[in-house]
């Protein structure tokens, strides 16, 4: 009986470890996808619109001096 409990516990632990490992690798994949998606041009549209707004407001030859106002 105690042997059976130990075997069941080992199997359960192994299954848990496998599930955790698979989940972690899935997490890494989805994290990477989320990161790449957040860097796409669609995701950056708001910021790029602001870039355009700034470059439209300030003519290229008046974009300030490198070290000061």
């Amino acid at each position: 009986m105690p042997l059976l409990i130990i075997v069941v516990a080992i199997i359960a632990l192994a299954i848990l470890l496998i599930i955790r490992r698979t989940k972690r690798s899935d997490d890494a994949v989805s994290d990477f996808r989320r990161q790449i998606n957040a860097l796409s041009s669609d995701a950056r549209k708001n910021v790029t619109d602001r870039v355009r707004q700034i470059s439209d407001e300030v003519p290229a030859d008046e974009q300030g001096e490198p070290n000061g106002p």
Binding site: N46, V47, S55
Partner: peptide, 13 residues
């Protein structure tokens, strides 16, 4: 287009 602001806009994103 925005050499002086590019870095902060990137961090803003």
């Amino acid at each position: 287009n925005v050499p002086l602001e590019a870095v902060v806009l990137g961090a803003g994103h």
